[in-house]
Computed example of a mutant assay.
Amino acid sequence: MEDFDKQTADEYIILAEDDGRILGFSSLYLPDDFIHLLFVHPEVSGQGVGKELLSASIEKMNRPARLKCVSENHKALKFYEKNGWKKVVEEEKDGEKYWVMEY
């Protein structure tokens, strides 16, 4: 939790819950209209939790909204593109490539 608090300082957190159980979350840096983190528990992957979190995140931000996705995470890239996000530019940092995407 300490690391989570440090990584998401000054960010707006959206939780997906079911009967008190956390199913996923998104973390938004609203001054830049940027989705910093979006995580869905593996047990509920493919059940619409990610789509709901993404929709709720988009509602909180101005356009264009942005996010970064690791280039090797083909499943996530496909998910974002299916939900209206577009690849803008592929960048590299610390030896890892990622796509900057916009909605």
Rank of each mutant, 00 (worst) to 15 (best):
E59T: 00
Q47F: 13
D19C: 02
F34C: 08
S71E: 12
A65E: 10
E72D: 15
W85P: 01
K78M: 11
L37V: 09
D33R: 00
K86W: 02
E96V: 11
R66G: 14
T8E: 09
E92L: 04
D18C: 10
D33Y: 00
S45E: 08
E59P: 03
V49I: 11
H74V: 02
F34M: 04
L54M: 06
D5A: 04
G46M: 07
K82P: 06
F4E: 06
L53F: 01
E92Q: 06
L15G: 09
L77T: 06
T8Q: 07
L30W: 09
H36W: 02
L37P: 06
D94F: 08
V88Q: 15
G24E: 09
L38T: 02
D19F: 01
K87T: 11
I58N: 06
V100D: 14
G84E: 07
I14N: 10
V100T: 15
I35F: 04
F34P: 09
Y80R: 09
G20C: 06
K6N: 13
E81I: 05
A76E: 10
F4N: 07
L53A: 05
F25E: 13
L38V: 03
W85S: 01
E96D: 13
D5I: 02
M101R: 10
V89A: 15
H74Y: 01
V44Q: 05
F25H: 12
E72Y: 14
T8M: 04
F39R: 08
K68A: 15
H74E: 13
W85I: 07
E17N: 05
